[in-house]
């Protein structure tokens, strides 16, 4: 009689893409918190400055940018104070590349755990993104402190209503980075070439995105292509939070949302479908 009863779980050679076990994922939500805590704690153990590094890292990179791109190469910042200009770019780019790298190496960096125990593998990239989101939050404190300084000194900075878009912008950035990382991860476990290649792609991609230069210097010829990059409208909208003058490019934002939705969905679905299969190649 019980032979024909209902089974709680089933392991078969091929996982169907629609077998997405949400309940299971939710049951393990505590684990996400543990991984985030682990990564935050272990990163700053045995450092003198501890969690101050969270703020120091983007600040140092920004100072290097200010020095090289601002003072030496004298690239325009569209009237922004250069510190604020490069800091905004750096924060959003750092968040993107950290989330992308973390998701891409989901399998390879956690192999020792994956070989011994099962839990929904998606926990790993999600907790990586959460860790970086937490770091982002602290960097925001720095960003607002600096923008208030400029407001106070009467520089060309203003706080616009668009700062309320920031959470959405970062959610989109996270989804984009994670989706892309997951897509790559499911293929790169078998052929590492893709991982090596992606590191070059990432460097190139930073220069295709208006991080160290304003979008105004891009020539008409490349404008369409330039705005098709989903990160471009996100970065520009982020920067426009501090200046009333810049117009929002709504069509580009719309396209970005669509592209990101497709990439994120396909990344998650493919990752889920292949989460066990990839273990054969590692």
């Amino acid at each position: 009689m019980e032979e024909s009863g209902k089974w709680d779980w089933k392991i078969s050679p091929v996982q169907k893409w629609y077998d997405f076990n949400w309940q299971e994922f939710v049951r393990y939500r505590g684990l996400i918190r543990r991984f985030v805590k682990r990564d935050l704690l272990s990163n700053y153990h045995q450092t003198i400055m501890g969690s101050f590094w969270l703020v120091l890292q983007p600040l140092l990179t920004t100072l290097v940018f200010v020095l090289i791109f601002g003072n030496i190469m004298k690239i325009s910042t569209d009237g922004f104070p250069s510190l604020l200009f490069y800091l905004t770019g750096n924060i959003i780019w750092g968040f993107f590349s950290d989330c992308f790298n973390g998701s891409m190496y989901s399998f390879r960096h956690n192999l020792h755990i994956f070989k011994k125990i099962y839990f929904p593998r998606l926990i790993i990239p999600v907790s990586v993104v959460m860790t970086h989101a937490f770091r982002l939050l602290i960097q925001f404190v720095l960003l607002f402190a600096i923008s208030f300084y400029y407001l106070w000194t009467g520089d060309q900075v203003e706080l616009t209503w668009r700062i309320f878009l920031f959470p959405v912008l970062f959610l989109l950035t996270a989804c984009f980075a994670m989706g892309l990382g997951l897509l790559v991860s499911t293929f790169s476990v078998k052929y590492k070439d893709l991982e090596n290649f992606m590191q070059y792609f990432l460097r190139l991609y930073m220069f295709a995105t208006p991080i160290v230069y304003p979008s105004s210097i891009v020539s008409e010829k490349y404008k369409v292509l330039f705005w098709l990059n989903p990160l471009t409208p996100l970065v520009e909208t982020f920067k426009s939070g501090f200046s009333e003058q810049t117009e929002l490019n709504y069509p580009a934002l719309g396209i970005a949302v669509l592209v990101i939705a497709v990439i994120f969905t396909s990344g998650v679905v493919l990752f889920k479908k292949r989460e066990l299969k990839v273990m054969d190649y590692l």
């Binding site: 709680d8 779980w9 089933k10 392991i11 078969s12 050679p13 994956f114 070989k115 273990m279």
Partner: peptide, 16 residues
């Protein structure tokens, strides 16, 4: 296989 570390090549494992 029972621990869900690797997928089987053929066959199904079901459980409660």
């Amino acid at each position: 296989l029972i621990s869900r570390i690797y997928p089987p090549t053929e066959g199904v494992i079901k459980g409660r």
